[in-house]
């Protein structure tokens, strides 16, 4: 029994280690390649660089990685705030109403969750461009928020359904109106749900590509995903610079993820519910 147990363990460890390696190697290779010279990467794609150098990072940074990072950060920040507040308010009203119309509204919002951006790309682009909202950081926050609202509303709706009614009733007896109940009782106690929703949407918006590609065409406004795609055009054969640009884009979010992995995992696993 003992030796068999150890053998099974070795096999299981082997399996997950192999997969972990498969996941890690491309990322490790990206970092290594970014500190090579163009010549080194061409002659020996697998080898380590003769000397650790950062000039590829300088070249990549000079294209405007800083701007891309900044754009992504503020667009993500404001989109997430809008999504959380708007969805929270809507979910609260919907979760506390047994009115038939309200249930219909909730179903409509749920249906909205099923609509993929790709399927409405053409009219969405036309509308935004007609409204003169192309190339505006503020303007892209709105469609981002709109596409984040359905899922977040579903998430909050479930949370509010489980929220103890008696607390709200106590607050009514204490003199709170509905808005006061929401902002003084419900919101302060929704921390976990808010964190989950915020992380989920932040990851999604930080990485969103197609809307950003269509709506933010000025170099000064581009976000990270669009910006790094531009790298491949900018540095046709400068692979180290491309890999350096990718490292700049990828490593910070990976670092944040590793530090807060528990919350990320919990948040994204919520999709299964």
């Amino acid at each position: 029994m003992g030796s068999r147990f150890r053998f099974v363990n070795v096999v299981l460890y082997g399996a997950v280690s192999l997969w972990s390696l498969f996941v890690l190697l491309p990322l490790v290779w990206m970092v290594i390649a970014s500190s090579k010279t163009r010549r080194e990467i061409f002659l020996d794609p697998l080898g380590l660089p003769a000397q650790f150098r950062l000039d590829a990072f300088e070249r990549a940074w000079s294209v405007g990685m800083g701007t891309f990072l900044f754009n992504s950060a503020i667009i993500t920040f404001f989109s997430v705030i809008v999504i959380v507040v708007v969805s929270g308010m809507a979910a609260y009203v919907l979760a506390r109403s047994d009115n038939k119309w309200m249930q219909l509204v909730y179903l409509m919002i749920v249906a909205g969750f099923a609509v993929p951006v790709q399927a409405v790309l053409v009219p969405l682009f036309q509308m935004v461009s007609e409204a003169g909202m192309l190339n505006s950081r503020a303007a892209i926050v709105l469609p981002y928020a709109a596409y984040g609202v359905p899922f977040t509303t579903i998430l909050f709706y479930a949370f509010f359904l489980d929220f103890p009614r008696e607390l709200e009733e106590a607050a009514r007896l204490d003199g709170c109106g509905r808005l006061q109940i929401f902002f003084r009782i419900i919101l302060p106690l929704s921390g976990p749900a808010i964190a989950s929703a915020a992380i989920f949407q932040a990851v999604f918006i930080w990485n969103e590509f197609v809307l950003a590609l269509l709506m933010l065409t000025k170099p000064a406004l581009k976000t990270l995903p669009v910006g790094i795609l531009q790298l491949t055009g900018e540095f046709t054969a400068d692979w180290p610079a491309i890999m350096a640009g990718l490292s700049i884009a990828v490593l910070p979010i990976l670092l944040i993820f590793i530090l807060a992995q528990k919350y990320f995992v919990r948040s994204l696993a919520g999709l299964g519910k």
């Binding site: 280690s17 996941v23 930080w206 990485n207 995903p225 790094i228 990718l246 990828v250 992995q261 995992v265």
Partner: peptide
């Protein structure tokens, strides 16, 4: 292991595509 295997999920598809 969970952290490593899950990690690509937080990376943008564009970055992954280019890598």
């Amino acid at each position: 292991f969970r952290t490593i295997i899950f990690a690509p999920m937080v990376v943008s598809s564009v970055a992954i595509a280019i890598i």
